[in-house]
Amino acid sequence: MASKVDQLLTAYELVVNEPWSNALSGQERVWFLVYDPAEQRKVDLRIGDFEMATKKAGKRWITISLKKCFPIWMASHDYKEEYFNDPETLVDQLESEFKKFAITFLIEEINKQGTDDKTLIAVRDISALFGFNRMSDILNGCANSFKGRMLIFFPGEYDKNQYRLLDARDGWSYLARPITA
């Protein structure tokens, strides 16, 4: 019997090999690779297999990690010392300023590598933003800033068009395509 990650890779291969329509909206060009958070390390170890499947399908693979997004924002913040002393004062900044920063961060990372209609942007480490901002807000802010497809490595669950990151937050409805095992 195939492992969950093998099943996920097989499901991904089917999707990445389909013809890519240019008539989709930005939100519809986003794919969520949904897996149990307990499988995160196994998925990380198999990233090369997802890349290879993408290239085998004749598509370009680029990867973007969100792991450094929050630390970069916090390190450049004028009031970081005050926030470390009283973290609750940071809440308003997260909703307004950090959300803008995260959207800009992702757009700039996409632009650095350039995309075309045959590029797949693999976005990893989205859990690094958990508790700071909603991934749905960030994706809505950058959905029209890329060509090709965006693959979100999503440790969580998908049920009835609702996505729940790390199985902890209320889900959100999104037009993205789920890829599940």
Rank of each mutant, 00 (worst) to 15 (best):
N140P: 00
K99I: 06
K59Q: 11
R169M: 11
K68F: 06
I138A: 03
Y79H: 15
S136T: 11
A143T: 06
E157K: 14
E13F: 00
Q27S: 12
D116N: 14
N140V: 01
K160W: 01
P19S: 09
I138F: 04
G48C: 01
K99V: 12
R177W: 01
E13S: 13
L129R: 05
L129E: 02
A143Q: 15
L129T: 06
L90N: 08
V15Q: 11
A75S: 15
I152T: 01
I47V: 15
D117Y: 00
V16I: 15
L90C: 09
A102V: 06
A11W: 00
A143L: 04
K99E: 13
N133L: 11
R124C: 08
I47G: 07
D6R: 02
M74H: 13
N22R: 14
R124T: 14
V16H: 02
E97K: 14
A2W: 08
G114I: 05
I62F: 08
G58S: 01
N144P: 03
I126R: 01
K118H: 09
W31Q: 05
D137H: 13
S65C: 09
N144Q: 14
T63I: 07
T180M: 12
S96E: 13
W20K: 10
N22M: 13
P19R: 02
P155D: 02
Y163G: 04
N144A: 13
S127V: 11
Y35R: 09
E157S: 15
R46K: 14
W20Y: 08
S3Y: 02
R164M: 11
N85I: 03
R134H: 12
E28C: 01
S21N: 07
R134Q: 11
G58F: 00
Q40M: 11
A128T: 09
L24Y: 02
A143M: 07
F98T: 04
E82V: 13
R164F: 07
L45Q: 15
K55W: 05
A57G: 03
P37R: 07
I110T: 09
F130D: 15
K67A: 15
D137K: 07
F32V: 00
F146T: 01
Q40R: 14
L166M: 15
F154K: 03
P19Y: 04
K100V: 10
Q162R: 12
M1Y: 03
I64D: 08
V16M: 02
G26K: 07
W61C: 06
V43S: 06
A11D: 03
D159N: 13
A168N: 13
G156C: 10
W20R: 14
F153M: 14
L94P: 03
S127D: 15
R29D: 10
Y12L: 01
V15K: 14
G58R: 03
A23E: 12
P87F: 03
E82H: 12
E13L: 04
I103P: 00
S3P: 05
F32G: 00
I64K: 10
I179E: 00
W61F: 15
L24R: 07
C142A: 14
W172C: 10
L139R: 06
S145G: 09
D116E: 10
F132G: 04
F84Y: 15
R124H: 06
R29M: 04
T119P: 00
K100Q: 13
Q162C: 08
T63F: 02
N144M: 09
A176L: 04
M74T: 02
A181V: 06
P71H: 06
E13D: 12
R134K: 12
K56P: 08
D78Y: 09
E157Y: 05
R46A: 13
G141H: 09
L139I: 13
A11M: 03
D167N: 15
